[in-house]
Amino acid sequence: MIDKKYPDVLIQTTGLTRKFDRQTVVDQLSLNVPAGSVYGFLGPNGAGKTTTIRMLLGLIRPDAGEVSLFGKPLRSHRLEVLRQVSALVESPSLYPQLTGGENLEVTRRMLGLPRQAIDRALGMAGILDVKNRLVRAYSLGMKQRLALAMALMPEPTLLILDEPTNGLDPEGILDVRELIAGLPKNMGTTVFLSSHLLSEVEQVATHIGIINHGKLLFEGSLSQLQAERQQYLLLASDRPEQARELATRNGWRLLPGSNGRLKLEVNGPADAALVNRQLVQDGVNVHQLELVQPSLEDIFMTLTKSPVG
């Protein structure tokens, strides 16, 4: 489905940097979003996700670095590349005194799309039945869906969504997740999706970028992130100092952040038993031994908790 006239990387940023009153909010960010992917852009509150998205759309200027969309610099080809991009940034932008249909009509007129596009988009977002109701009377979730319909209406090659499940109920979240997951196949659309919850994107994303304090901490496919899920052994004993020394001497790799307990990189239960035996032989009494398989969420937490800058 992906049209070959586009390069393999739809969004590329190089050294993207932006400051707000001397605070560096986006710091040397180099993103590569492959065509045909659903790219989850993850980071805690205030990480710089929205600021990055604003720069991707040319809404604010970077202090340094560059954005390229479809292989073309945004600065010199803004209108040309934006023709194939749709976005929903932060909150929906809707006119409350207009109906849902009229709100889409405003955007349709600006984009010069055919009339049928409106009902099709409303149908995709599952709100065709409230087309003729004033947006003032919409619920938060209905507004969010309408904004989503607005973004889908032009059938963009690249769809940029900033926390699109804001305000949706569990059913709505599921609907939207399903819709997004199907976009690359059904519409040939590449999706760039920001969120502060890994659990929210891990089910739809093919690629993940993790940002904190404006810096990119990880970028790769979901399977690459899963490969980072290194199993470890959590161990508590009566003589922690001696245990640490012994484990290191025996060639085990110590992981940081063990909080009084030892955290060792291991491979399966056999390793755990071996560590235990070695310690007991040297007179250290082990009273807790736990083999831990971190979840993706743990990785995300570890990455975003580590002190940066």
Partner: peptide, 10 residues
């Protein structure tokens, strides 16, 4: 409605 971001991203 913070609509400028929508208008100016078109």
């Amino acid at each position: 409605e913070k609509a400028w971001k929508h208008l100016f991203a078109m």
